[in-house]
């Protein structure tokens, strides 16, 4: 799998993401500056976390209008894979590649802690190496991760199986206690209708090494890598 990480000014988890991708694929991803306009030859486009353009105005708003974005739209339109994590998820919603928006956390504070996620379906390119309904741990680090969409949109996402992950307790309960940022219906991540574009707030890329506290995030990167090896 040939992966590219898109670097906007203010992005800060690009190195974490590069480490996780290199561990899975065996080669370093291509780093693509936001002023570039081509993603030729790339299988997976990753938009990492951080504070693109300082998150001024709205999180992801200015990145979503950067010169690289038409190439990302075209890649997605071709059925290409796009993964947006944290600020990357915000950028994908601002760009209209995923529905909804990420609002200020319900508690109005930045949240940096481990959360638990429930895998809603284990048959996508991203989640094939998880078990259905598996609970895994991932660090949260965001101030604006409160997923919002109109109720019809939420119904459609659920009805079409496009919810990727939900915030859960370690035992797998989906409740308000597990939902620290106040997301609608505990949604932590969603897919595009073709299941190729994935956006999520937590950081699986920061849990791919036992030394850092676990490898709960590793199956996601191994899974997408295996999807291209097949």
């Amino acid at each position: 799998m040939r992966a590219a990480i898109v670097v906007f000014p203010g992005i800060n988890r690009e190195r974490d993401m590069a480490i996780a991708l290199e561990r899975a694929t065996g080669r370093p991803p291509r780093m693509v500056w936001h002023k570039e306009t081509s993603l030729d030859g790339i299988d997976l486009v990753v938009i990492p976390g951080g504070f693109s353009f300082g998150d001024y105005l709205r999180c992801g708003a200015m990145a979503a209008r950067s010169p690289i974005m038409p190439a990302i739209h075209a890649h997605a339109a071709r059925g290409g894979h796009v993964l947006g994590v944290c600020n990357g998820f915000q950028i994908l919603t601002e760009a209209g590649l995923l529905p909804g928006a990420l609002l200020r956390n319900a508690g109005l504070r930045f949240l940096s802690m481990d959360c638990h996620l429930r895998v809603e379906r284990a048959d996508t390119d991203y989640t094939a190496q998880y078990q259905p309904r598996e609970i895994f741990r991932a660090p949260l680090a965001h101030g604006d991760g409160n997923y919002f969409a109109e109720s019809e949109t939420l119904d459609r996402l659920e009805g079409e199986g496009l919810v990727a992950f939900r915030y859960a307790t370690p035992k797998g309960e989906i409740n308000a206690h597990a939902n620290r940022n106040g997301s609608a219906r505990n949604i932590a991540g969603i897919y595009s209708p073709n299941l190729r574009v994935l956006g999520l707030m937590p950081h699986p890329e920061d849990l791919v090494d036992p030394l850092m506290g676990g490898i709960d995030g590793k199956p996601l990167f191994d899974g997408i890598t295996a999807a291209f090896a097949a």
């Binding site: 988890r13 190195r15 974490d16 480490i19 949240l111 940096s112 660090p139 920061d206 850092m212 506290g213």
Partner: peptide
């Protein structure tokens, strides 16, 4: 002090062995 350090990103960089 969790209320305090839960507001600080302690994992960015992917190298934090002891948080």
């Amino acid at each position: 002090r969790a209320w305090v350090y839960d507001q600080y990103d302690s994992t960015v960089g992917g190298q934090t062995v002891k948080r």
